[in-house]
């Protein structure tokens, strides 16, 4: 037994070393910067300065919550319909979901700029049809669209995976016992797919709340998210301390929301929403 665990530890060692150097140590560096001033002395100044950014945090949270809800509303039915397709078609569909991710985020976002622009693709079509044009670029809607578009695959994938694992015989049993389609959905499919939904929400919410590039390009520089502020502290202001303390608070926020989400998934299949 001890022999086996020693071997296990040896196998784990490279991973632990990797995680230590590239995950744990950098986190401590972030903490160090967050609680020191530019001379390296211990200071709460950066944390106190965060009060100035309360509004930016509020906007970022609202944007990411909206984006997460929309991806869930699109992703969940999509994943469900996917499981109803023949296996070959499922594979094809998954490919199509993944395909845009092979392109760089920057290029995808730039393309959206050209689509939403004042004289962009959509407005050209609209005016060609004699319809009034819409002002899309530089609006909150454009930023949320960018988030939804970019992060939707992260919602679909985990939900699809958990749904695909639900034993078809359970579904048949539910039907035998007289469940109609709605009851089957509510009492079987939804509860059983909760773990996928939880990880989908986490995987969309986390990148959404720290988004920066999308908001600059699609928001036309009129929308300021916390990711933009952090980027500017590091890239422009050369204020690593403030940048680190903003990142630190963001991490705490994410950890809290993940803890809340995990409470929902603890019950696994027994949860009733």
């Amino acid at each position: 037994m001890t022999k086996r665990s020693a071997r296990q530890a040896l196998i784990n060692a490279p991973y632990m070393l990797w995680a230590g150097i590239f995950i744990v140590v950098p986190l401590f560096i972030v903490m160090y910067y967050a609680f020191t001033d530019s001379t390296g002395a211990f200071s709460f100044a950066n944390i106190l300065a965060l009060a100035d950014y309360a509004e930016v945090f509020r906007v970022s949270i609202i944007f990411s919550v909206i984006a997460t809800i929309i991806t869930l509303l699109i992703g969940y039915p999509f994943a469900y319909c996917l499981t109803k397709l023949p296996v070959r078609a499922q594979r094809m569909q998954m490919m199509l979901v993944m395909l845009p991710m092979w392109m760089n985020l920057l290029i995808r976002t730039y393309s959206w700029m050209n689509i939403l622009e004042k004289n962009g693709l959509i407005n050209t079509v609209l005016s060609g049809l004699g319809l009034p044009t819409a002002n899309m670029i530089g609006t909150p809607g454009a930023v949320i669209l960018g988030m939804v578009y970019n992060y939707l695959p992260y919602m679909i994938l985990p939900i699809y995976t958990t749904m695909a694992k639900i034993d078809p015989s359970l579904s048949e049993a539910a039907e035998d016992l007289g469940c109609n389609a709605w009851q089957k959905m509510r009492r079987l499919i939804v509860p059983m797919s909760i773990p996928g939904v939880v990880s989908g929400i986490t995987m969309v919410f986390v990148p959404s709340i720290s988004t920066f590039y999308i908001s600059q390009k699609l928001g036309g520089g009129k929308i300021l998210l916390i990711g933009d502020i952090i980027e500017r502290q590091i890239q422009v202001s050369y204020n690593y301390n403030l940048g680190a303390s903003l990142s630190f608070v963001l991490m705490v926020l994410i950890l809290i929301s993940m803890a809340i989400m995990n409470r929902f998934s603890n019950g696994e299949g027994e949860m009733v929403v």
């Binding site: 004042k118 670029i137 036309g220 009129k222």
Partner: peptide
């Protein structure tokens, strides 16, 4: 008045 704030865009 602004449509947006841009750099190389």
């Amino acid at each position: 008045i602004l449509q947006g704030r841009v750099m190389d865009e």
